[in-house]
Each structure stands twice: as C-alpha cells, then as structure tokens.
Amino acid sequence: MLKDITLGQFFPIDSPLHRMDPRTKILLLILHIVAIFLANNTAGYVLVTLFTLMIMLLSRVPLKMYFRGLKPILFVIIFTAVLNIFLTPGTKIELFNYETPMTWEGLVLAGKMALRLVLLIITSSALTYTTSPIILTDGIEKLLSPFAKLGLPTYELAMMMSIAIRFIPTLIEETDKIMKAQKARGADFESGSVIRRVKALAPMLIPLFISAFRRADELAVAMESRCYQGGSKRTRLNEIHFASVDYVAAAIFLLFFAALITLRILL
C-alpha cells in the first residue's frame, strides 16, 4: 500500500532533464499545464500527448514508474469519467436497440478529461522524478525571491517546505513500522466496515503524531545548537545556474507552445 506512493519521489539517475535548472523545469511545467488545457482539437491533443511522451523518454525514468504513480489517482479518473459519460447532455448511446443514459458527447468529454488528468500527473511526476527535493526548494525560493521585497518570507517558506519534504519518507517509514508493530499485536487495518477501519487507525495515528512531535523537537534543538539563523545572508554549497540545456529546453518548449496555439487558431 505505502509502496505505491511515488509522487514526490526523486529518481537518482542522469538525464538531460536531471541536468536542467529547477527554475526552468518549474516554469516549463506551469506552461505545460496551460498547454494541456489549451489543446481543444484532435491535432492539439495528439501534439500534447506526443510532447509529454517525449518528456517521459528524455527523463530516462522507467515508464513503469510513471504508471505506478497513476495508480493512486485511478479512482478519481474513473469517477470523473463515469460522471461525464452519464451527465453530459447530448445524443444517447444505443446498445442492443435500448437507449442507455450514456451520451456520445459524454464519452468524448470523459476521454478528454481522463487524458488531461493523466498528462497532468505524468508531467508533474516528471518534475519530481528528475529533481531532488533540495534542489526543487532552492528553485522555488529563487523564483519567489522577487516577492521578498514585498515582505513575503520566501526563505522561511522554502525552509519549511524542505523540512516537510525531507520528512515525508521518514514518516512513511515510521508509519510502516508502527503498522507492522500493531499488526504483530493482531491489529486489522484491512477488513471490516468503514467505521471499524477508521477506529483501527487510532493505534497507528497516535504513535505517529507523538513521534512527529518528538522529531520536530529534536530537529529544532539540533538547528538551534548549530546556531541556525535564517535569512538572506546564508550561502549555499551548490548554487544553481542556468546552462545550455536550459536554453535548448526553453527553445524547444516555446516552439511546441507556438505550434499548439497555431493549431488552436487554425483548426
């Protein structure tokens, strides 16, 4: 169960996407999301899908990983698809001479929505698979830095985010350990009614909260004892820089974006 959580997991290999600057990747991701919603005809959808496929291949992350990342949201995709098929007004689908409540328009819309959702998840995972959490928060901090002048605590926000991201795997591990320990004492998390299952979570959640507080306290003490002070005067071991790969990527992306807009206007 916990093994299926792949979103937000870094995949430590080398690829052109791994070498890109996090700022480029974040900005291009935002543009790509816009592009997914800009596509409004078959040619547009094909182009966006092919471009996403190219990103997947360029990242050199096994395609299996991307599909595993889709598993947790499969339910959402199916749920929206079903709603679309049944609730969109239009020509009714006839099956064996019977009129069903499903419509052709709904079917098409369901397909489009499902495709958009899948593409969204895949491109977002492409960012987290190819960017380590530390570099990612560095990138976000740099991107937000212009807002610091307006009083936005960018450094603190970035620090909070890095800490949160840093502790996700730790807490997953901890949850796994506690679940196992309670299972060893006969706990049953997988069967029974919804109410019983929710009740069965208490023996897991209480120790998890206690340990999260303990860790937070230990971390605060450790930072304090090393004289931690936030703020702009801190320097980094590895500064992030734009390199040629970023310019190439941006150029390719702008071409793709222009093509998409042309398709939208022409067709």
Partner: peptide
C-alpha cells in the same frame, strides 16, 4: 500472530 510474538526495536514508540 498469536503464536509468534514479535517485539520490535524501540517498542515503546508504539504505545
């Protein structure tokens, strides 16, 4: 699990 009792490392963290 009734036959085999397992006490994990730092079991006090599961109270």
């Amino acid at each position: 699990r009734q036959k085999v009792g397992l006490v994990f490392q730092y079991p006090e963290h599961q109270l």
